[in-house]
Write a protein that binds this DNA or RNA. Structure first.
Lengths: 196, 196
DNA sequence: GCGTTGATTCAACGACCGTAGAACGAAGGG
DNA sequence: CCCTTCGTTCTACGGTCGTTGAATCAACGC
């Protein structure tokens, strides 16, 4: 039989430890933010020497860049309503599987300019996608508000842990948010004559 | 004539420097967050010696406590609709006069447990006030969402500076948000028989 | 087998931080 | 006028941080 774990080859072991370090880093960046996360603590958490972290990742900044690279959800093309629903679905996904990666960026970006830039770069295209789909003059603003709501919910639930948002079911939250999203995504039909 | 500024008395000078320090601290805590704000930098910004900051405020924590003490807006009693409007008005106020004080807490609370506790303590009573006024079984959750939206807008506008939210007029934002707030504050009338 | 590579550790440097306490010097009360 | 008060500065300590470079030692190619 091919015993899978008698002696990990050197390359395997290397990748394994590197992954351990990255996992520990993600955890700490999400919990503590960039500044309070120390390379020494990450190394201790991963069971290795601080020097090794430097050897693999070069610097704390690069470690953060590697740890906080998050796959951006792909938004499908479609009408504004469909886009709003997709946005809600994406939020739901981030709500029931606590997104350690994006928490790391969110928590860190408020004190780390690099994290802020990274997040802005990742978020802007989605923002303009949404904005483009909204048939209104203030589409940009509406898209910004949708984004603000998503961030507000995530921050309130995972970072501030305020009120009942922390332990509500994602479905409940989504259900309450859906009408708001529809309202923001689809402005009242642009009839040229005033209705009253 | 009573010349107001030939020789400031000692007490006056003392209070003036103390106020300078507090102003510098508020600015830095809001811009950089708790960790990146150093007593040395605050002192430099205020034009005094770091030791003086310690002498006046005792510790960095107490300096933060003094700098970040924010007057919580009083929410008037009333129906859920009125409360939602009051909440919107409060948000509008915080939107057009950039609230350095509350930014300091908001930015710091994500990495400083003390700031988080302070903010939670200040926010909880308002939350339950709102919750109590909403006639629905999920009032707590609805209140939490209202709070999340407020925070999301402020964070997106001042901290993340994402999209068009950063330079939109408060009135525009409020107008778009009002229907959402009404929707969340006043659930569909509880008619016992299903409408369809 | 043997020299080499590479994963990993160790010890140390310089910088910066919060904080403490002594020292100075002018304002204020008697 | 002198002595006290107190606003203010200076110097220094201990600690932690990111980062570095040499040292160690097992895995690997030939």
């Amino acid at each position: 039989m091919t015993d899978p774990s008698p002696k990990p080859t050197r390359a395997q072991q290397r990748r394994r430890t590197e992954e351990n370090i990255l996992a520990a880093a993600r955890r700490m960046f999400a919990d503590l933010g960039y500044d309070r996360t120390t390379i020494r603590a990450v190394a201790r958490d991963a069971g290795v020497d601080p020097g090794l972290v430097m050897h693999y990742f070069g610097s704390k900044d690069e470690l953060f860049a590697r740890a906080a690279s998050l796959p951006t959800d792909e938004l499908p093309a479609g009408s504004a309503e469909q886009l709003a629903d997709a946005l809600l679905a994406s939020l739901a996904g981030r709500l029931d599987s606590e997104p350690v990666g994006s928490l790391a960026v969110l928590r860190s970006m408020l004190t780390n300019a690099d994290a802020a830039e990274r997040y802005r770069a990742a978020g802007e295209p989605q923002l303009s996608r949404i904005s483009a789909a909204i048939p209104a003059a203030d589409a940009d603003l509406r898209a910004g508000l949708l984004s603000a709501i998503v961030h507000g919910v995530i921050i309130e639930r995972y970072l501030l842990r305020l009120g009942r948002l922390a332990d509500a079911s994602p479905e409940q939250i989504i259900d309450l948010l859906r009408p708001c999203f529809q309202l923001l995504a689809t402005p009242p039909p642009p009839d040229p004559h005033r209705p009253e």
